Amino acid sequence: MSDPSAASRPVQAVVLAGGQGSRLRPYTDDRPKPMVEIPGTGTPIIGHQLSWLAEEGVTDVVVSCGHLAEVLQKWLETADLPVSVTTVVESEPLGRGGGLKYAAAHLPHPDQPWYATNGDIWTRFSLRDMADFHTERDAVATLALARPRLPWGAVKTDGFGRITDFIEAPPSTFEINAGVYVFSPEFAGLLPDRGDHERTTFPRLARERRLAGFTIPQGSYWRAIDTAKDLTEAAKELAASGR
């Protein structure tokens, strides 16, 4: 029997791959951030993302390029990809919101929902479950939420101020925007032509109770690749998981 939820799940996505990646130098001196390889995999970050999107039912992806766009475009043209990919390049900087709107205008099904992900996120969780969560809440936009591990050790104290325990790299007590989204068709029309949607569109939707947050399930893998240390940690975690 077919799943009635399947009809409302996106089959298209935008990958925002235009960042400078300055904190990942020297890896990003000759390639954009999403083209940096996870050590030991032989595959760039965006390759992992496209495989994940395909596994989750996505058939069409728009990749928004920027810094060293030609390097990313060349790889996309020559790689054996599991999805149909279109690339777009902003002729002038439009900001995060404007860039997202520009990319969304190139999606093949403007009247259908869509996923979006930042080009430096490496994760694995059920986008189908996130899409169902989005539909159940009648949201215009749903953000994936992560609880990353802090880069420092933490201490516990008792009521008298004595240290009782040390905790290495504990999870944050706050959830953060994980850089993965589900958007309803009308969301693109709410984006600014230029500027940052996280300062305009998201706060507006939150006030209107039309913005939802989907917590990435405990045990699912999530990491933002921002620094060389993140690459090293991702490689270690990959080796430990046996994937």
Rank of each mutant, 00 (worst) to 15 (best):
R128Y: 01
R128F: 03
M130A: 02
A131F: 00
A131S: 11
A131P: 00
A131T: 01
A131Y: 01
D132A: 06
T135Q: 09
E136I: 00
R137T: 00
R137E: 05
D138L: 07
D138T: 06
D138Q: 11
D138W: 00
A139C: 09
A139H: 09
A139K: 07
A139R: 07
A139W: 05
A139E: 05
A139M: 08
V140M: 12
A141P: 01
T142G: 07
T142V: 06
L143E: 13
L143Q: 14
L143R: 14
A144R: 03
L145Q: 15
L145N: 12
L145V: 11
L145R: 15
L145P: 03
L145T: 15
A146I: 04
A146V: 09
R147C: 07
P148E: 04
P148C: 04
P148G: 06
P148V: 04
R149V: 08
R149A: 13
L150F: 07
L150G: 07
L150D: 08
L150T: 07
P151S: 06
P151L: 08
W152D: 14
W152L: 15
G153P: 10
G153Q: 15
A154F: 00
A154H: 05
A154W: 02
V155L: 10
V155G: 02
V155Q: 09
K156D: 07
T157Q: 10
D158Y: 00
G159Y: 05
G159K: 08
F160L: 11
G161D: 09
G161V: 04
R162Q: 13
R162E: 11
I163E: 06
I163W: 06
T164N: 03
T164Y: 04
D165F: 01
D165I: 01
D165E: 14
D165H: 11
D165T: 05
F166H: 13
I167T: 14
I167G: 08
I167Y: 11
